[in-house]
Amino acid sequence: MKNILITGGTGFVGKNLIGYLMQKGFQNIQTLNLREPLPAVLPISNAIIHLAGKAHDLKNASNPQEYFDINYGKTKELFDLFLKSTVQDFIFFSSVKASADTVEGVLTEAAISNPNTPYGKSKLQAENYVLSQELPAGKRLIILRPCMIHGPCNKGNLNLLYQVVQKGIPYPLAAFNNQRSFLSISNLNFIIEQILSNAAIPGGVYNVADDEPLSTNAVIQLLGEVSGSKTRLWKIAPGIIKALATVGDKLHLPLNSERLKKLTESYVVSNQKIKQALHIPALPVSSREGLKVTFKSFRSN
């Protein structure tokens, strides 16, 4: 069975992916800590899955240069080692934010990338570097651009929404009509396992998302269904909410412009290219079923 090398193995995605791959028979999985100096020669392996990176800080408190030092600098360093190694596959976890911070219509891989945040720009810089290098024969480069990933016990905006619903607090953002794509960790694990198991899947850039987008209001209602709590959707004028978020920017409150955007904007991502590459009509887990699994884990914890 293939030897796999993973960076970011202690993170949410890394832990889930390692457990999933071991269940699928990938027993020889090694992790690489990018907080330590990289080795002069990479361990013998068939594939590198590069998960490690600096995540998007919704509080906007991070030094912008840190994104480039980590998301670009560490990726460049690791990819240069890959080019000189005997490893065949390099799977790089980028982000849909490397393409666009806001989306009109549906985001596809054909869109011209124009990120505005240091996070998105650093991911795009890393993409551009690895794509600009000539791949030796027998090597494959795959760039995955996931949207918002969720799964059991994952912390983040979905957990915050769960707390709001469970406590009976009205959801005040119901006036925002949106559609968002999500990505279940189950579907993500499935896609990576398929790539590792099938050398015929071509290299390139792939958006990764569940099949169906959902509105935030639909997500709130699904939360109520899973938690057994009554949901209350308040349609407060968007202008008032945006003004409060601006205050939150200055006072570093939980509701700020970045988090408001995350909760209320439309961001629909097409996954047609990756499904065509895998020769499947649909991913194994629907958006609603994947979210239910995540929400049930919040309830049990």
Rank of each mutant, 00 (worst) to 15 (best):
L196D: 05
I142N: 06
L83T: 00
G290S: 11
Q276M: 11
M148K: 07
P115S: 12
G290P: 14
P170F: 02
Q133F: 11
L233P: 01
L283A: 01
N63Y: 06
G204P: 14
L83K: 09
Y206G: 08
S300F: 03
T294C: 15
L42S: 00
Q194Y: 03
P202H: 04
I49P: 13
G138H: 09
V106N: 03
Y72F: 12
S197G: 03
A199T: 14
S95Y: 04
K121C: 05
V219Y: 05
A243P: 00
V205N: 09
E77C: 03
P43I: 01
I274E: 10
Y171V: 08
I241F: 01
P202F: 05
H150P: 05
I236V: 15
D80F: 06
E104I: 14
G19D: 08
I44Q: 03
L196R: 10
F93L: 10
P118M: 13
Q272M: 05
I70W: 04
I274S: 09
A61Y: 01
L38N: 00
P238M: 04
K24V: 00
A200H: 10
I18D: 07
Q276G: 15
I169M: 14
R180T: 04
K15F: 07
V247N: 12
A277M: 05
H50D: 10
N178G: 06
F295R: 07
L283E: 01
L81G: 03
P152E: 13
G25C: 00
V106T: 12
I185K: 04
Q65N: 10
F12W: 00
K24F: 04
E258C: 01
I191T: 02
W234L: 15
F93H: 04
T216W: 03
K76N: 11
N154R: 14
F176G: 02
I236A: 12
L196H: 06
P64W: 01
Q125N: 15
A237V: 14
L17F: 13
P284R: 07
Y119T: 05
V106M: 10
P281T: 09
K167T: 12
K121F: 12
K97W: 06
Q163R: 14
V13R: 00
L255F: 06
V13W: 06
I70F: 03
E66Y: 04
K139Q: 09
S45V: 05
P118T: 07
L124T: 02
Q221R: 10
G248C: 08
V268D: 10
L34M: 11
P43F: 01
D57C: 09
T86S: 15
L223K: 01
N114V: 13
A61P: 05
G11C: 09
L81V: 02
L135E: 11
